[in-house]
Design a protein around this nucleic acid. Structure first.
Lengths: 332, 332
DNA sequence: ATGAAAGCGCTAACAT
DNA sequence: ATGTTAGCGCTTTCAT
């Protein structure tokens, strides 16, 4: 049985497309379609297992009820959990999520973004690595409904949901120092996004505040293209230089480092302390002990949804910048 | 500046829609459009930042280049990682992923499935909880491109990517017994899907094979609606009944149980052994020690992609049933 | 080398 | 209470 369209239904029933359309959209009463006709249509539609073509509807109405969710890696628990919350919130409003991962790659980001735009997503929620890109500037200049999270570019005015990167990293590192850390190294992804820069800044501020001399040799940068190998190399460097504490700017490299420690430096897991931005379940059970900065995932999702909803209903954006307070988690 | 359509471009340039469309689809040469005209169009399109409306294209071509990915919970690492691999594979082929979580809820599953169908997804990859539902039967009867993974219903013939549930659970439990387990309890989600039933079956077979008397009081079922509370209750029951080993049929409840053990039964984490289907990073670091059954995530994604591609290119499905071999992971 | 026109499936203003 | 019709933005056959 070939797929039926409204036209087919109308023909089969000897009615017009209009009538059928009205009834299928629950406007039967409002549009004075007789109960009898309504029932006839509804029954027939069920019988032939009719599925309205949402694509045609979207084209007609200029609205797809789709939100694009663009992140570096959807399988990173941080982004996966936020994605799940967004999915739930938007489901209630009749919106659905199209997802894309960028691997922090500018070309991929641009391509996915264009794909989203071409597919007429109604809004975008983006953890972008290149807020300055032409694609994003173009979106912004067209007032495209858009909220950034996790990443910021202070030169670009837009909607941002962020966390207090600098101050919370500072707090975490200071806490480590209070717990007797003397020599603290740091491993980070390439800090070309502001959140990472700020987290590093927080680390420096903590050292200064606690009168620990700063040594830029102890800041190690891992290339985004090969996290495993890069982290392995930088971890080795730091351990050989005798640090008692290693600070990580995000969960990804911290998790890799924990694995490396347990594989290659098993003897040291009790003598070294870790500090990490982001929190993952694993930290509760692993060695070295981790002091972590847990981002308020639920709030990030909630505020993103709210901003998007406001824009979508009022058709205007106010460019809010929301900075949330993470939670410091200490383990003993 | 209002959004431009092909019509606008054509008008602005004094050309026809046809010509513009040909050029934009790289058919300029093939269709004998003069180089001059081609360049004129391409330049103008770049200048006005034209974005082709993929929705209109989809409507016209009856193809959306979208794949629906439906799972119980996209933030479960197992499903998130597969999702990421699928995204990558399909990206290469020009397809994109629409995602949906069902929370093992039949109504939600039906609704999301219908939403996917209405949005004209070209194919579906589904870890369904209710393969017998009308919606799914309807899809199957229409030969809709569809592959199931992780879950099976032997009464329904379709494409399945599965793992050897029974035999690998049997192997894992037997291994535990070889490592001196004497009294083994089991905690599971409601086993209304075959994979879970088979995993439980594997547990029973192992006991029988190793001459350990079977006690159905030691099989505890957690209601899907409140995993946390349910697991807490059943864990308590088993511990009080004096088990030395607890078997879990999936990662979710095992992870919850690990947390519970470390929170409420800290004194027992070294005396109890866990066995769990699925593998998560955390198991490498947590107590109790876990013997886990790691599913070949990459293969699951790869085979799903291949089957879908075959159907999409050949327009016919053969209903393959692929059973993959998981890996037993032991920790000491 | 380029254009006119039909049509994908739907909605909705405007008839009747 | 129901029907006619135009049009959303695109592709593509068939002209010219």
């Amino acid at each position: 049985m070939k797929k039926k369209s409204i036209k087919d239904i109308a023909q089969d029933l000897g009615l017009s497309k209009t009538t059928v359309s009205f009834v299928l959209n629950n406007k039967g009463d409002e549009k004075n379609i007789s109960k009898k006709t309504q029932i006839k249509i509804l029954d027939y539609v069920k019988k032939v297992d009719y599925h309205p073509n949402q694509i045609a509807k979207s084209l007609k109405q200029g609205q797809t009820n789709t939100i694009g969710y663009l992140v570096p890696d959807i399988s990173n628990p941080f982004f996966a959990k936020i994605g799940r919350l967004l999915e739930d919130y938007f489901w209630e409003k009749g919106y659905h999520l199209l997802i894309g991962s960028t691997d922090e790659n500018k070309d991929k980001e641009t391509q996915v973004l264009n794909m989203f735009v071409n597919r007429q997503v109604d809004a975008l929620i983006v953890a972008s690595c290149f807020i300055q890109s032409d694609t994003i500037k173009s979106l912004l200049s067209r007032d495209f409904p858009l909220v950034f999270f996790d990443r910021e570019d202070p030169d670009i005015i837009a909607n941002y949901i962020l966390v207090e990167n600098k101050i919370s990293m500072k707090g975490a590192v200071e806490r480590a120092i209070e717990l007797k850390s003397k020599k603290l190294g740091l491993i980070t992804l390439t800090p070309d996004v502001y959140s990472l820069k700020n987290r590093i800044e927080g680390y420096k501020m903590a050292l200064e505040n606690k009168n620990i001399p700063f040594d830029d040799q102890l800041i190690r940068i891992v290339d985004n293209n090969d996290l495993k190998k890069g982290t392995e190399k930088e971890l080795k460097t730091l351990i050989e230089s005798g640090v008692d504490t290693i600070v990580f700017t995000n969960n990804q490299i911290a998790v890799i480092a924990i694995w490396l420690m347990n594989t290659y430096y098993k003897d040291k897991v009790n003598n070294i302390k870790f500090v990490s931005f982001d929190n993952v379940d694993l930290f509760d059970y692993s060695l070295p002990k981790v002091i972590s900065v847990a981002q308020p995932i639920d709030k990030i999702a909630k505020y993103s949804t709210e901003i998007i909803e406001n824009i979508l209903s009022s058709k205007k954006s106010e460019n809010k910048r929301i900075e949330l307070t993470p939670k410091l988690i200490e383990r003993k």
